[in-house]
Write a protein that binds this DNA or RNA. Sequence first.
DNA 1: CACCTGACTCTAT
DNA 2: AATAGAGCCAGGT
Length: 130
Amino acid sequence: MEEGLYERIYEAIQQIPRGRVATYGQIAAIVGPPCEGRTVGYALAALGRRLDEPPVPWQRVINAQGRVSTGPNQQRLLEEEGVVFDEAGRTDLKRFGWPGSALAWAEARGCGAPSPAEPSEEESPQLRLF
DNA sequence: CACCTGACTCTAT
DNA sequence: AATAGAGCCAGGT
């Protein structure tokens, strides 16, 4: 069953937990090429004319600058989920960014099974929620 | 079948 | 830090 590229994008977005945000680029990375940040934006733009079930939490997708792309309404929806924005309308992706994206990305690459021999482990991308 | 639209990201000034 | 410009794809009419 061949689903459109947009469908895969929607599913990736549906994996973003409440109170957490992901960037367009992040979603694109999860879906994989030829999906790019803008493609995600295009897919979401098309959402306005489609009712999906379950609904796609489009509000949790923001741009790489940590700012919403659709206007103050989206920001308000996120604030109701607990996401905090500063006066410049930016949020700290280190705190509210969806950390699960890295895992989803690895899965998409078929790296579900960690290799027994993993040399370079000197520098871990330690995700600190603080 | 061709044309048009659309919610991004990066790099350089 | 802010602004400007270039690159790119899928879906609907």
